[in-house]
Amino acid sequence: MNTLINGLCLGGIYALIALGYTMVYGIAKMLNFAHGDIIMVGAYAVYTTLALTGHTVPAVIVAVIVCTLLGVLTERVAYRPLRGASPLAVLITAIGVSYLLQSVSQLIFGAGTIPVSIGNWGTLELMGISISISSLLTLGLCVVIMVGLSLFITRTKAGTAMLAVSEDRAAASLMGINVNGIITLTFAIGSALAACASVFYLMQIPAVSPTLGAMPGIKAFTAAVIGGIGSIPGAMVGGILLGVIEKVCSSIPVLAPYTTAIEFGLLILILMVRPTGLMGKTRREKV
């Protein structure tokens, strides 16, 4: 039971990060490999604010603001000049941005791992099992954020415009939709979700380092691909699936050493059966 809750918790975190990958891929048509490092920056923002104020809430707010601005800035400075360039050039740029962010944090905070104390609110006894409050909080907030995002996409004009841009950029601009504006909005939302993920991630693994974003980044990217990259419900399902599998495997002694291998093995298996991912669209060729 505890394993399942921990798995759902981790899955929620993966889903939040995967949403950033999948939304940027769907709307800007690029893989933002610097997305994992946005989480890392978010974690340092939490650490710094906690050290200065000692309170969790301002730390979360600062992390969200810093990540959102950083996401918008990287899009404006690094990716927008490459609009219309070959996908490979954009991909390499994203990897460059990733190294840049890691190096800058290393310059500021050093290469070492720094412990962060966040979310030590003890445990709750529920029907005979003890669950950490931070896990429950993570789970609850992940659900709230994902429902909120779904409502935003399906119920608001800006959300529908995001879907329109994702389907046909030129047609969207003929509707009067500012495509660059929608792409900026997408980066802002994706990065804000990454900031939330960084807070929840620190509650699970309470330490920051310049390479903190790499592993959750690559796992969430895997989750996005499993769910079908470009699909928002796919990212949610893929993230939760991967998180549960990871926690279940690592709780079984025989499987534990192979957890990561099993996760990536699952990716290969799913892609063999369904190359577009679980909820990905099979694109029909237009005649």
Binding site: A161, L163, A164, E167, A171, I177
Partner: peptide, 16 residues
């Protein structure tokens, strides 16, 4: 927009 509904397509037409 093939993946949006008819009403959503019309809504996008009045975007501005």
């Amino acid at each position: 927009f093939c993946e949006l509904t008819v009403a959503e397509n019309l809504k996008m037409g009045a975007y501005t």
